[in-house]
C-alpha cells in the first residue's frame, strides 16, 4: 500500500475520496481537532500555542515602547510576522523566509489591518512621543496543512492574553515611568478566524486539508470570518467553483468559527482563574 501511495499519490487519494473518506480516517467535510494553550511563554507579554491536528503554531507577542510615525502620531504599531522555518516541513529550506511565509505574513497583516483587530489609537501613551509597538511573531513548529487557521487562532489567543504595564509619560520632563504592578489588557475589537479548504478537483473540496492534500490539490482557498461577518474569501487560483459550493463552505466555516470562539473563551477564562 505504501508503494502504491508513493508511485501514484493522486490515484491513491482518489480511491479514498470516492468513498467520502481520507487516508487519515476523516470524511471529506470533517475538521481536525483543535487544542489551544494560552500564556505558556512567561517571558512574552502574551502568547498562545495552537494545534490543529498535527499542525502546531506558537504566537508570542512582545511589547516595546517607541516613538510613533510623524504621519500618524496617535497610532501604535501592530506588526505580525509569520515564520515557517525549515524545522516545520521538508518544503522549506533554511535561509531567508520562503515565498509561502511572506505571502502568509502579508495576508495575515492585511486582514488584521482591514478588520481592525485592535484600535491602534489605544496603543498610544502620549501622542507624537510614545506609543506601544506589538511584535506578534507566529512560528510554525509542525507544518501539516491549514496553517492560516492556526495562525489566526493563535494570534487572537495571544492578543487576548497580552497584559501591558501601565506607563506614564511626563510631558515636561520627558520621563517615562513604568508601573509594573497595574496590568492593562488589550481591547480586542474583532476576532477574525480563517478556515482553509483544498480544491481537490471540481467536485471535491477538502475541508481542513493536511500537508499532503494541500500539495496534491489544484488550489487552496481560505475563508475568514469574524463575529458573523465575512472578512475575506481568499481564493487565488485552483479549479472553478460554483457559487453553491462557496456558500456551503461559508456555512461550514461559520460553524467552525463558533467552535473556535468557544475554545478561545474557555482557554482564556481558565487562564484567568489560575
Amino acid at each position: 500500500m505504501d508503494h502504491y501511495k508513493s508511485v501514484h499519490p493522486l490515484k491513491y487519494y482518489q480511491d479514498y475520496l470516492i468513498h467520502d473518506l481520507r487516508p487519515d480516517g476523516r470524511s471529506i467535510s470533517k475538521f481536525r481537532n483543535i487544542a489551544m494553550n494560552v500564556d505558556s511563554i512567561t517571558t512574552a507579554n502574551g502568547s498562545a500555542v495552537v494545534r490543529v491536528g498535527n499542525t502546531c503554531v506558537v504566537c508570542g507577542i512582545k511589547a516595546e515602547l517607541g516613538p510613533p510615525r510623524t504621519e500618524e502620531p496617535e497610532n501604535g504599531f501592530l506588526l505580525i510576522n509569520v515564520d515557517l522555518p525549515s524545522l516545520c516541513s521538508s518544503q522549506f529550506r533554511p535561509g531567508p523566509p520562503s515565498d509561502k511565509a511572506q505571502v502568509l505574513t502579508a495576508f495575515v497583516n492585511n486582514i488584521a489591518l482591514q478588520c481592525g483587530i485592535i484600535e491602534l489609537k489605544s496603543l498610544c501613551i502620549q501622542a507624537d512621543k510614545l506609543v506601544w509597538t506589538l511584535y506578534c511573531d507566529i512560528i510554525c513548529i509542525n507544518y501539516d496543512g491549514a496553517v492560516a487557521d492556526a495562525c489566526f487562532t493563535s494570534l487572537i489567543g495571544a492578543l487576548l492574553s497580552v497584559s501591558l504595564p501601565k506607563v506614564e509619560y511626563n510631558n515636561e520632563t520627558n520621563v517615562i515611568s513604568v508601573n509594573e504592578e497595574t496590568k492593562i489588557s488589550l481591547n480586542v475589537l474583532c476576532k477574525p478566524i480563517a478556515t482553509s479548504f483544498a480544491i481537490f478537483n471540481e467536485k471535491t473540496i477538502l475541508v481542513d486539508p493536511c500537508e499532503e492534500e494541500e500539495l496534491l490539490s489544484s488550489g487552496m482557498f481560505c475563508i475568514v470570518i469574524s463575529d458573523n461577518e465575512l472578512c475575506s474569501i481568499h481564493k487565488p487560483g485552483g479549479n472553478v467553483l460554483e457559487e453553491e459550493q462557496i456558500k456551503k463552505c461559508i456555512s461550514k466555516a461559520k460553524e467552525r468559527t463558533v467552535l473556535i470562539y468557544e475554545l478561545i473563551q474557555a482557554t482564556t477564562f481558565k487562564q484567568k482563574l489560575l
Binding site: Q114, D227, S232, K235, G238
Partner: peptide
C-alpha cells in the same frame, strides 16, 4: 474570470460585511 467557460474564479480582499447579505450581494 475564466471567459471561455463563463465560470468565475473569485478572490475577495476586504473588511467585514454581513454574511446574510452575501447571497443577494454576490448574485
Amino acid at each position: 474570470f475564466d471567459l471561455f467557460k463563463k465560470n468565475r474564479y473569485c478572490l475577495f480582499i476586504g473588511t467585514q460585511f454581513n454574511i446574510n447579505n452575501f447571497n443577494e450581494l454576490v448574485k
